[in-house]
């Protein structure tokens, strides 16, 4: 088997992520907007903001990752590209994973990179911790994109499927959100949390592509 179709799928998806609707700007705007609303809602007390900051950023990251996901497979089903990818002979799971990874690079990684700025807004100390947290957000964001990809594949032929994607994907986000927040707040049982966060991301990357492939084959049938 040649890797050429998988690379081509990655290239096309990356180009589409930037051409289709401002690339990272839309989810970044959503992330910023959602996070900025919180201090306005709960007041500017430093201790309170410090306490809720990491949790709010996780929620904002989860929601803003959903913003771009509607496009990854629905557009392919509409314009006939999905039919072509299904006929390349390459495993559809690998193609789906390549497309998801391309969209994560275009939109998900910028989201994670913006998170330390938001943390500062929530009164976090500027320290090495911010970089470690950046790593956690990057890992968690990857899992969000792969689980969201399953929702996107399942609703590929559904008009206005954005809401459906959220309903399918949000329950799958739960382990990532739990371990991610636990790893940062340092509460009881937080020692193993970074490892569990990494494990949940690895699980998503390993399982989600097969679910996406099955859903996409069904969408084309």
């Amino acid at each position: 088997m040649s890797a050429a179709p998988i690379l081509a799928a990655f290239r096309q998806a990356f180009a589409e992520a930037w051409a289709g609707g401002a690339g990272a700007l839309l989810p970044l705007g959503f992330l910023g907007g959602a996070a900025v609303l919180v201090p306005l809602g709960i007041g500017s007390d430093t201790q309170t903001l410090k306490a809720v900051g990491p949790g709010i950023i996780w929620v904002a990251l989860a929601l803003s990752s959903l913003v771009t996901l509607e496009r990854i497979f629905q557009a392919d089903a509409e314009d006939g590209t999905l039919d072509l990818w299904l006929q390349t002979g390459a495993p559809m799971a690998a193609i789906a994973a390549a497309k998801t990874l391309a969209h994560w690079l275009a939109a998900g990684l910028p989201l994670a990179l913006a998170s330390p700025l938001l943390a500062l807004m929530f009164q976090a100390q500027a320290s090495m911790d911010l970089l470690i947290h950046l790593g956690f957000y990057t890992l968690g964001g990857l899992a969000f994109f792969f689980w969201g990809g399953v929702g996107a594949a399942l609703s590929a032929t559904v008009r206005r499927g954005g809401l459906l994607i959220s309903i399918i994907a949000l329950p799958l986000y739960v382990p990532t959100a739990i371990f991610g927040a636990l790893a940062m707040t340092g509460g009881i049982g937080s020692d193993g949390a970074p490892m569990l966060l990494a494990a949940s991301t690895l699980f998503a990357c390993a399982v989600a592509p097969y679910a996406m492939a099955a859903a996409l084959r069904l969408a084309a049938d």
Binding site: Q12, D79, G80, T81
Partner: peptide, 8 residues
């Protein structure tokens, strides 16, 4: 459906 992307 031709399978051509809007930006292609």
């Amino acid at each position: 459906k031709e399978g051509i992307k809007p930006q292609e």
